[in-house]
Computed example of a mutant assay.
Amino acid sequence: MFRFCFAAASLLPLLSAAQAPAVTPDSRLPGLLQQRAELTRRYAEASAQRHSLFGNKPSKKDLQEVVDALQGIVDKDQQIVDVLNETAQKATTTSVRLAATTTKLESTSRDDRNLTAQRLLELENETQNLRQREKQQLAKQRDLEAEVAEAKQGHFVRDALIAALAVACLGLLLVRRRRK
């Protein structure tokens, strides 16, 4: 009797904890708990029986039924503990797997952030280089435009000199023709 009380008292926190988390559809725990409840009912019925020849005392057969019922409860409790340990092991395995996945994701995230930061830095440098080249091209373009303006002015002066010489030549030709 003491063993039963001790076993029941030690299993109560486990049973209440086992009922708190979500039980998967393929879990054996609900069935085992139902079987244990049936065994507990059988124990209560067996311990209530009084078939002794000496009055209101349990007979040897009654006591054997009580012992058998208690043994069934203890065996069922062991099965429940085994299922809970199995569930705890699965939870631990899942937790370790999730921790590894989380670590991997954090590492990947960190690598992605570093790669993105590096790529942004490269793009900023490229943008600065392009701006610098654009400034150099604009300066070169202004220099070329200034050279073109100088060349145009030089052409204008040359063309004006050619025109003046042409007029002078014509004037000399005319003067020479008039003298003849």
Rank of each mutant, 00 (worst) to 15 (best):
M1Q: 10
M1F: 04
R3P: 02
C5G: 15
F6E: 06
A8D: 15
A8S: 15
A9E: 09
S10Q: 14
L11D: 15
P13K: 07
L14S: 15
L15S: 13
S16R: 03
S16G: 03
A17K: 10
A17I: 05
A18W: 09
P21D: 02
A22N: 06
A22K: 10
P25M: 09
P25R: 09
D26C: 11
S27G: 03
R28L: 10
R28W: 11
G31K: 14
L33G: 05
Q35F: 03
R36M: 01
E38H: 03
L39C: 05
A44C: 02
A46D: 00
S47Q: 08
A48H: 06
S52C: 01
L53D: 15
F54P: 11
G55Y: 07
N56F: 05
K57R: 04
K60E: 01
K60V: 00
K61N: 00
D62T: 00
V66T: 01
A69E: 03
L70H: 00
V74I: 11
K76E: 08
D77W: 13
Q79N: 08
V81C: 13
D82H: 12
L84N: 13
E86M: 12
A88H: 15
Q89L: 13
T94Y: 06
S95A: 15
L98C: 08
T103V: 01
L105W: 13
E106S: 07
D112R: 01
T116L: 01
A117V: 11
Q118L: 02
L120M: 09
E122D: 14
E124H: 04
N125Y: 13
N125H: 07
T127I: 13
Q128T: 08
R131K: 04
Q132H: 03
L138Q: 11
A139N: 01
Q141C: 04
Q141D: 08
R142M: 06
L144H: 02
L144D: 14
V148E: 04
G154N: 01
G154Y: 07
H155E: 09
H155I: 05
R158G: 05
D159C: 03
A164V: 09
A164Y: 02
L165D: 14
A166Q: 03
V167Q: 01
G171T: 05
L172E: 07
R178P: 06
R178Y: 14
R179G: 10
